[in-house]
Every structure is written in structure tokens, then in C-alpha cells.
């Protein structure tokens, strides 16, 4: 030990530190326990697979959203990006374009829409909330125009395989989401780009003065969010065999909820994808549970909103007490 390193004391591993680290897991366990007691269908294998499958879609969107919120931004346009890229891909593949190319086009559309978000925010100096709200409207409008209000159905097997096939016992969407999760976790924790995301979220002024091209990084982040939304869209459409013009409406809400419940701070610079993973599972389990208990979908919104508010209060309280 060098003299310059302060001597560690027997500092208490306090309750608040414990809660900060494992609180989410605890809540999840309690919820699962409660639902198991209340409904005998909850713990069945098929229901659990159901939850996870649903979670892959919102989880993929939430991964991109995590990056955005880490930079202290927000992306309200994910639902619309998901819709536009998915319907275009579905249409093209139906007309004979190879499925893989269709997927790539969808992701490119997501990237471009994300890029426009990023440029509006950085060059146009429009607050993320407003910029992506605009994109939400425009994207949905374009989707409606493109589909003329009608769904595309009857997609070829080559398209649907990403939604319904499985590798061994593991459904394809879970494989894709799992891979994406691993890649993005590595990106955030091991790479220069990942470090920059946290640093920019913490203090963009200092980041610029340390030589980071802040604007470019922010554009990349919104592009990633757009691409994640597009990927989620492809999987969703492949699974449902139907690209509805209103697909993905309100998805931004679940994604933001998952990220925030997962402990990522709205003020940026703090949070992990692992948190988002648990956040997603929690939100989906909650939705599933309310469904099983036959709670009206109207109440579902109320309950989810309340959960988010509680999560925010909880993290605030913890942060204050670890100061």
C-alpha cells in the first residue's frame, strides 16, 4: 500500500448500499413470489417463456434507450422508428427482396431516423424531448402513409424465422436479444465509446474540453437507439406475421420505464444494462401478472406509472443517504 492511498476504515456496508445494488432483485423476487401465490398459472413454464419472449422486444428497445438516457437524453420516437422500419422491411420482403437484405434496410432506416434525431439535438440544439417527439409524429405519419392504413400479412418463412424458430430449446428472439445484450454490455463497459457515453452524460462541457467530439457521440447514441428499435420491429413482425401500421405505439413508455426502474439516472452518467435487463423483466412480469389476475388494462397503466414513480423516489432517497 502506498502512502497516497487513504487507509480503508472498517466502513460499514450500509443498508442503502445493499438496497442500491440488490433492491431491484429483491422487488422482483417479491413480485414473483406474490404472483405465484395469487395465480397458479404464473409459474408455469409456458407463462415464463411468454414473459421472456415479450421481454425480448421491449428489452431490445430498452437497450438502445439505456444508452440515450445515459447521455442525459431521451428517445420518444422508438415506437415510430420500430413501426416504419418494420413495415418497410415486411413490404419489401413480401415483394421478393431477400429477407436478410430486408432486415438490413430496416436497420438502416432505424439508423437514419436516429441520426436525424441526433443531428436535431446536437446541431439544431433542440432538447431531446422535443426533437424525438417530433420524430415520433413524423415516423408514425410516414408509417400510415406507407401502409395506407392496411397491415402487411402473410410473410415468407425466411422473414418469420427470426421471430418463431429456435436454436435447440431457446427461441430465436431470445438468442438475438441475448447476443445484443452481451455485445452492448461489452461496448459500454470495455470500449472507448462506452466510457465516452458515461462521461458525456455526467458532464458534457467537461467532456468537450477533454477533447471528446461530444456531438458525434450523441448522434451515434441516437443511431444505436434507432437501430435497436428497428431490430425489435423486425422480430415483432416476424413473430406476429403481421406488420400493422399502429405497431409499436407506446413502446417508448415501457422502454423508458424499464431503464429507469433498472436504476439508470435521468440526469445521465449512471446506470447499467444489467439494471435495464432486470427492469425489463420486472415491467413485463408486472404486466403479465396484472393480465393473469384479470386486472383491467386501464389499471395496468396506472400501476406501471406508479411503479416508475416509486422507483424514482427510491433511487433519490438512496442517493441522498449514500452522499
Amino acid at each position: 500500500m502506498t502512502t497516497s492511498v487513504a487507509q480503508p476504515s472498517s466502513a460499514p456496508f450500509t443498508l442503502s448500499i445493499f438496497l442500491k445494488r440488490f433492491g431491484l432483485l429483491l422487488v422482483y423476487a417479491l413480485l414473483a413470489l406474490g404472483l405465484t401465490l395469487l395465480s397458479d398459472r404464473f409459474l408455469t413454464g409456458s407463462n415464463q417463456i411468454n414473459i421472456v419472449r415479450q421481454a425480448t422486444i421491449s428489452g431490445i428497445v430498452a437497450i438502445g434507450m439505456t444508452l440515450v438516457i445515459l447521455t442525459a437524453g431521451i428517445d420518444l420516437s422508438v415506437g415510430s422508428i420500430l413501426a416504419l422500419s418494420a413495415v418497410v422491411a415486411a413490404d419489401l420482403v413480401k415483394q421478393g427482396v431477400p429477407a436478410l437484405l430486408g432486415f438490413l434496410i430496416a436497420i438502416a432506416i432505424g439508423a437514419v431516423m436516429g441520426m436525424i434525431n441526433g443531428v436535431m439535438i446536437t446541431r439544431g440544439k433542440i432538447p431531446p424531448f422535443i426533437a424525438t417527439l417530433g420524430m415520433l409524429t413524423v415516423g408514425r405519419g410516414l408509417t400510415l402513409m406507407y401502409t395506407q392504413g392496411k397491415p402487411f400479412t402473410g410473410l415468407p418463412e425466411s422473414f418469420r424465422f427470426i421471430g418463431i424458430s429456435s436454436i435447440g430449446p431457446v427461441p430465436m428472439p431470445i438468442v438475438v436479444a441475448g447476443l445484443l445484450f452481451i455485445v452492448m454490455t461489452l461496448l459500454l463497459s470495455r470500449t472507448r465509446f462506452g466510457e465516452y457515453v458515461y462521461l458525456i452524460g455526467d458532464n458534457p462541457v467537461a467532456a468537450r474540453l477533454a477533447g471528446i467530439n461530444v456531438n458525434r457521440m450523441i448522434v451515434y447514441v441516437y443511431m444505436i437507439s434507432g437501430m435497436c428499435a428497428a431490430l425489435a420491429g423486425i422480430i415483432l413482425v416476424a413473430r406476429l406475421d403481421s406488420a400493422q401500421p399502429v405497431i409499436g405505439v407506446g413502446y417508448e413508455f415501457n422502454a423508458i420505464a424499464a431503464v429507469v426502474v433498472g436504476g439508470t439516472s435521468f440526469s445521465g452518467g449512471e446506470g447499467t444494462l444489467l439494471g435495464t435487463l432486470f427492469g425489463t423483466l420486472l415491467i413485463e412480469t408486472l404486466g403479465n401478472g396484472l393480465n393473469l389476475l384479470n386486472v383491467s388494462p386501464l389499471w395496468e397503466q396506472v400501476v406501471k406509472g406508479t411503479v416508475i414513480a416509486l422507483a424514482l423516489l427510491f433511487y433519490n432517497a438512496i442517493n441522498r443517504s449514500t452522499k
Partner: peptide, 29 residues
């Protein structure tokens, strides 16, 4: 505080931010 530090990040990140370009391979730190 306002222009230099990333208060909620580690000492490591704060001290080495200018080194990321030099000490990374294929983008990995």
C-alpha cells in the same frame, strides 16, 4: 467542478479520459 470533472465517474475515468485514444485497440480500452 463545471468544466473539468465528471463527479459521478471513477478516479480512473477522470484521470485517463485523454488517454483513451492512445490506449485502445480496435476501440477496446
Amino acid at each position: 467542478k463545471a468544466q473539468g470533472l465528471f463527479l459521478r465517474q471513477s478516479v480512473r475515468s477522470n484521470a485517463s479520459i485523454t488517454l483513451f485514444t492512445k490506449f485502445s485497440r480496435f476501440g477496446f480500452l
